[in-house]
């Protein structure tokens, strides 16, 4: 059909507690894993809940799977799976009862993947929700979001409470979902978490979408972290030279050891460093949390 899985235009919602969103233009093509990033309260959940017609935008519009989020919401929800950020499940129901109940709300799309997912995540089905840990409840939440094999899955902070092994399994499942032609939209406050899963990330901050980029571009944006050790006692004389050097940012000093980010041309920076009494240098890719922080500092200035 060619319509993007999600498209918002000028999406705005004036909302209490400053959790609103302003003029969000977002496009997520089908077959992509899109990571929606921002600190708590930035408007991630608000945006997601507008897509599902739980909240109504003040202005602007959103379409999901080519359908209008207001007028065609039932069709959208038919074809979508959703994991709420703050998942509450009826405390007295067992896993089986919860999954049956939610499946009964989708008479047209039977839970064909349930058994496979239950096995995969080793979900405890026979205990009431109140006896399960947060992680185990979250697994039930994941199963219900995927059990009917929806085209689009919207996950709000999906890995919160999951132990690392389960997180790995989750990431595999997400990749499989897009491999099979599905789309995944997931929110997170940690870049580290989505960089292994997402194709692209959008960063939202105080209700505004400040950036959308592929994960590769974001990593490749000259963002290297360098740890530089200079000759003993040379720290004082090196510091002003280092700070004057073009292409580096965020210089941090501990004695004769410096840490900084390379944000410009690496060759130019190396040439500049060549004049210094370097005895060791360690360079590594900045992880996205550092990129994230750098972006934040950048847009806060």
């Amino acid at each position: 059909m060619g319509a993007p899985a999600i498209r918002t235009q000028g999406l705005t919602l004036a909302y209490r507690h400053g959790r609103g969103i302003e003029d969000v233009d977002l496009e997520v093509p089908t077959g992509e894993v899109f990571g929606f990033l921002g600190p708590n309260g930035a408007g991630k959940t608000t945006t997601i809940r507008v897509l599902l017609d739980l909240l109504r935008p003040t202005s602007g519009s959103a379409s999901v799977l080519g359908l209008d989020s207001r007028n065609d919401s039932l069709q959208i929800r038919e074809r979508t799976g959703y994991l709420p950020g703050d998942l509450s499940l009826p405390p007295s129901l067992t896993g089986t009862q919860v999954l049956d109940w939610l499946a009964s709300l989708r008479p047209n799309t039977p839970p064909i993947r349930r058994d496979e997912l239950v096995q995969r995540f080793a979900v405890q089905l026979d205990r009431p929700m109140k006896q399960l840990s947060k992680g185990n409840r979250q697994k039930i939440g994941l199963v219900q979001a995927f059990q009917h094999a929806p085209e689009l899955v919207i996950l709000d902070e999906p890995t919160s409470g999951l132990d690392p092994l389960v997180q790995d399994e989750f990431h595999r499942m997400v990749r499989e979902h897009v491999r099979d032609g599905g789309t995944v939209f997931l929110s997170s406050h940690s870049l580290d978490e989505v960089q292994h899963t997402a194709d692209r990330v959008g960063i939202i901050r105080e209700g505004r979408l400040v950036m959308v980029e592929t994960v590769d571009d974001l990593r490749g944006r000259g963002l290297r972290r360098v740890t530089l050790t200079v000759a003993p006692g040379a720290g004082d004389s090196v510091e002003p030279q280092l700070r004057a050097l073009a292409g580096i940012d965020g210089v941090d000093r501990r004695g004769d050891v410096f840490e900084f980010a390379v944000v410009g041309d690496y060759a130019v920076v190396l040439a500049g460093l060549g004049k210094l009494p370097v005895i060791d240098m360690l360079s590594r890719a900045a992880d996205l949390d550092e990129v994230f922080l750098a972006m934040y500092r950048g847009s806060a200035k």
Partner: peptide, 14 residues
């Protein structure tokens, strides 16, 4: 109030 309405209404029911 219990927080279960969100999940319920994310399903295809008006």
């Amino acid at each position: 109030e219990r927080g279960t309405l969100d999940l319920l209404l994310s399903h295809p029911i008006s």
